[in-house]
Structures are given as C-alpha cells and as structure tokens.
Design a protein around this nucleic acid. Structure first.
Lengths: 298, 298
DNA sequence: ACAATCCATCTATTCAACAGATGGATCAGA
DNA sequence: TCTGATCCATCTGTTGAATAGATGGATTGT
C-alpha cells in the first residue's frame, strides 16, 4: 500500500487552503512536512498533483480527480471512527427482532424507517418464527427483541410489555351465504367452513377460536384472507390487514352476537431479562412500546 | 485521524488468515507487529475487535462490522492508486466532446456506454455548441474532440476524419397538401412554407437548402420535427430522427424530383493537430471513426 | 506428555518523520 | 524599481515511533 492517510489528509488540507504553508499551519506541522508529503505522494502515484509555477500551487486536473477520491476515502475513515465510537458507547452491531406474526409489519414500517435513520450502521435482522421458536430465540440470545401474543408460555427469564389488543373481526366474501345476515350466532358459524391460521400461533391461542365443524388450515394471515376473498369460508383476520379489502368490498365484516364475543389477541413486546440491550435495542424497545399498533406509521 | 491504512490492512490480513502469526507471515512482518497493531487499533477505537479466548483469535460482531468498513476503505485506496496509474500512463482525467448537432446522439449512445465501461473514472463532457463555436473550442483546447459538418471553415490546425454522409429526407405531416403528391419539384416546394434549422449549423451549409420563399427558423432538429408534425410546413430532417415518427405515421417522406437532389451533409470527426489526445481520447476517436452513423449502437 | 503453534510482552535498534534554517521566487505596495 | 512579506524546495541534525527478535504462558492435537 504505497499510500497513507496522512498523505491524503495533507493533500486535502493543501487543496483547501490553497497553499502548503497554510496547510502546514492548519495541520500543526512544519511547512517542510507538507511540502515533502505532497512531493512523496506525487512520486508514489507518478503524477503531478500541483502546478508550482507561481506563488501558490494550483491543483492540476489529475490532482482534482485524485483529491475527489481522497476526500471520499477520508470521509469513510471518519465514518468508521464515528461508528466505532458508537459501538464503544454501547450501540450493538447487530439487532435481531423476532415477530410472531407478519401481519404486524404495516405499523412497524414507520418505526423501522426511523430506526434506520437513527442507527444507519446497525444491522437489523427481522425474523418471523413460530411463537415457540420465538421464545427459544429470546432465551438463546438468537434474538434480542420479540413481538408475539402475550399470555403464552410465561417464562421466568422473559419480560413482556403489552402492546395492546389486536382485534380479529369475522369476515367473509360479499357473495358468501353469511354475508347478508344481520347477526351471526355460534350455531350459524358452525354450519359454515372456517378458515384458521396455522404456522403462526398454532398454539392454544388461535385454536381456541375454532368454532366450525369444518375447518381449513392456512399458513399465514395474508393467505387466509385470500381464501376468504374467494368465498371459501369465514375467518377471524387481524384488523390491520382489513382496511384495503374492506374498502374494495372484497370482504365484509360479520356482526357477531353478544354471546360470541369479539375474538382478539393480546400483543406483547418480549425481551430477555438477563441480556441487556445496547443503545439501539433500547431505542427500538422504547419506540415499539409507545407505538400505536392500530395505526400504520408513515 | 487516529487511524492508519497499515492498521486496516493488518486487520484485514488477520481476519482473512484467522491468525495473527499467519497475518504477519502474509504481510512479511514480525508477529509482534501484527499483535501490537491490532491492539493499538483496538485502543484507538475503544473496541474489542478479536476474542482472544482460545488458540485462534475470533472476530467479535463489532469487529466484523469494522472489518466491513475497513475493506471498503482499502478497496477505495486500491481504486485510487489504480486510477493514478492510469493517469500516469496517459489517460486524461477529463475529456470534452463537442457535437454540432444533438440529433447525432442515438448512434453515439452505444459508443459512450462502452467508453464508460472502459474508462469509468474519466470525466466526459458533452457539449452542443454551434459549428463556429465548435471550431473555437477545438482551437482553444476547451474541447478535445468534435463532431460537426465537414467542409466548413477548413483550418490549418484542425484534422478531420469523415464519418459519412447524413441524409436529410424531405418530410411533411400526413395531412399536409404536399403529402399526397407522387413527386415534388422545386417549384411545388417553393410554394409551401419551409422549416429550417437555426442555431445549429446556421452557416452556409444549411442555408443552401433554403428553397421556399416563405421560411420559418427553428432552433434544433427535434423542435423542427415537431413543427413539421403539426403540418406547418415541410423540412429536411436528419434521417436518424425519422425512424419513430415515420413508423407512427406522424410524418411522411416526400419523393423529390431527380433535379432537386437528395439533401445531405457530410459529418466529420475533428481534433486539434497540436493537442495530443490521451489514451481515453485516442480510444474514443478510434471508436467513433469505425462507427456506422446510420445505426443506433445498442 | 510432547511437539507445534498460538498470542502477549519486553527490549534494543534502526530508520523514517520531523522541525528548523536557508535560499530562490513571487507578489503587492510604496 | 525597490522592499517587505510570503511562498515553496531543499538540506541537516535530532528525535521518536515502528520494528524484529527473544521469551513465556496457553492451547491444541498426537
């Protein structure tokens, strides 16, 4: 590497100040140092960087190009040291957020965007494991933060902060037999095919919503919604997914009888009690805690 | 700048080889040098880069991130020295190509693309001056290469290589009175408004095509074509511009009587005899010389 | 248990970077 | 045109940081 950052820094100073002496003053060195540094750089690169005709040295066209690249390199070096400073003060280099349900992404979007602005160098990893795996990931340290349904497998080592209750309205396609009814009872629902989500949250949480005698299992909420759109059955779908389909009249809500109750799930933010978060993790946890999960953050 | 390229290079070698001793061997230095270099870098950045528990040091997550940035910086440094090498062997940092007529861009496109691949760091400047200015630019050194119409102001100092003849077919809008005629004569043309290009090639070259008694002047070939499309007159338009409008039936060709002749211009590549071109300029001149100006290079 | 490596640390040396001085050149103002 | 201020290149002596080599403790594989 026939190159040193000192040389590039000297080149930059000389170009900025327009004189070797001024550059030396700015760098707190002797003028001869600047003079020889530039000369050495020139012989190293085999290029004339400055035109020395007159009183002040002038950058040659080639010098301008080299200077441009030098500035870029110096900028990157500054970025490196700045990032190192962040790491030194407790920003973790990598952060993994495990989410039990990808239907939560809409309201997460804005927060993640803000996170990217705040911690541009931190590698963020988003995973969508099953709930059981989510717990495992938090316990093993594979993930630092988790979003999942709350009252499940409460573990000593895990902390949880409630994010609110996610409604799961009953929906069907507009041309579905149930669509025209003023109110549906357990009995009427039982007579029609129910679409249930599997894969995500297969545990007792969702299974307790099983009502019909005839059930189809579908992996993923989005896929479930597509099946409903086709008129193949009714389902409980997370509210956040319904705005557009309801507006486009692809699905309609069912009005459940009082006795049936409104299906809903408690969403929680999880982390490990014994694995302290870095600055980025703390920031993200704070942001998630104060987020409104009913709104899509812009 | 609490940082040196040597340190980054050492970090890279240590990470690549997986051991400080191996890194030292690869760098041709003593093992203690690598060991202290890494240690110094760690204290400079206030970060633990390697986990020293076992026999071999292992990169920490933070170390991986820093290494990524270090690699980028080292890559840029290599690019800088490589570019400097090119400059040293005669590639000019900047090249200006002056073109008399922007209608020539279609066939230039592919060549310029290849140029960008061949000389990614060279700044290319494309200018579209009037012919008189083009000559001036070549004489003053403001431009190194020029494309313009040939037999004009032949200067002692300028060289020219012919690029071929550009046809200038007569066209009108489909609903124009002349459109239906089998053959047009000078007399019939004289009776209709002629659209002539000004700005580019105002000199004797284009003015000699003046036929009609009534003339509109328009700056730029593209603008001229638009006027013709509106049915406001007839014009001689460079062939390269006509492919799409003819296909879309926005304009139609007129068939000129033999006596009238087919208007055309000789296109030439110009440069200054006394200003030697660099490697990039030579490459471009060669490419332009062998190009077929009738085809759009992909 | 032994051989082979590994890394950290210490020390002596060497060489490159540096400050300061000098001289020739340029520019602005008298 | 002369002078003072400032510029850059170059030389020189000195200092200090980078280096090699040796040593010791630790780990791994046989």
């Amino acid at each position: 590497m026939p190159l040193s950052l000192e040389q590039l820094l000297t080149l930059q100073a000389a170009a900025d100040t327009g004189s070797f002496s001024a550059a030396a003053r700015r760098l707190g060195k002797a003028q001869s140092v600047v003079s020889t540094a530039i000369a050495n750089l020139e012989t190293d690169l085999d290029i004339t960087l400055f035109e020395r005709g007159g009183r002040y040295p002038r950058l040659t066209p080639a010098g301008e190009q080299i200077l441009r690249q030098a500035r870029q390199i110096l900028g990157q070096c500054e970025a490196l040291t700045a990032y190192a400073g962040e790491l030194a003060t407790g920003v973790e280099p990598k952060l993994t957020l495990a989410i039990d349900d990808d239907s939560q992404l809409p309201w997460l979007g804005g927060i993640l965007e803000a996170f990217a602005l705040q911690f541009p160098q931190v590698e963020l990893e988003l995973l969508f494991p099953l709930m059981e795996d989510l717990v495992e990931m938090l316990l093993s340290g594979r993930a630092q933060l988790g979003i999942g349904y709350e009252p499940q497998l409460p573990r000593e080592e895990l902390c949880c902060h409630s994010l609110g209750r996610v409604g799961l309205p009953l929906v069907v396609a507009p041309h579905h037999p149930l669509a025209g009814m003023r109110q549906v009872t357990r009995e009427t629902l039982q007579g029609q095919r129910q679409i249930l989500a599997t894969g995500h949250g297969t545990g007792p949480e969702r299974s307790r919503f099983r009502i019909s005698t005839q059930v189809w299992w579908v992996e993923g909420d989005q896929a479930m919604l597509e099946i409903v759109k086709k008129g193949l059955g009714w389902a409980s779908v997370p509210e956040v997914l319904l705005a557009a389909p309801l507006k486009n009249r692809e699905v309609v809500r069912l009005h459940a009888a009082k006795a049936l109750g409104q299906p809903s799930l408690q969403l929680g933010l999880w982390w490990h009690r014994a694995h302290p978060l870095g600055r980025a993790g703390l920031w993200l946890r704070e942001a998630l805690t104060h987020a409104d999960i009913r709104k899509a953050h812009p």
